[in-house]
Amino acid sequence: MKKKITISKKFEFSASHRYWIDHWSAEKNNEVFGLCTSPYGHGHNYELHVTVSGPVDPQTGMIINLSTLKAIAGKIVEQFDHKFLNLDTPYFKDRVPTTENIALVLYELLDEQLKKEAGITLEKIRLYERGDLYVDVWPEDK
């Protein structure tokens, strides 16, 4: 029987954002984005679940040392914490900081860094905007 083992760690960051497309009329922006167009932004306590997979090291009994995962992912998450995502991060100059787009940015950063620093595969991320709304991102071949 083939099995897969994963480990997930949770991170939190608090940030504000605004949904707005400059070349759309105010009416169109309000129609599509609703309350999220509020001019000075609004915020959420985001919760990020980072799931990695790989063989369990027979000596340490671990896929990855959790403190390594915490250090790598923590450094990335830090860039988003207590920031206005539209202006205070470089990632949303030309895209709206929706939950989908924030998750895509986080996935890309995490995937690259985990591979580089720990040689580990990112299995999936789940980003909660609130308790009742979340986005999952995982590789297309899974």
Binding site: T99, E100, L104, Y107, V135, D136, W138, P139, E140
Partner: peptide
């Protein structure tokens, strides 16, 4: 960038 799948879930 690696090809990914994206799903959004909301509770009602």
């Amino acid at each position: 960038m690696k090809k990914v799948q994206v799903a959004l879930s909301k509770v009602f």
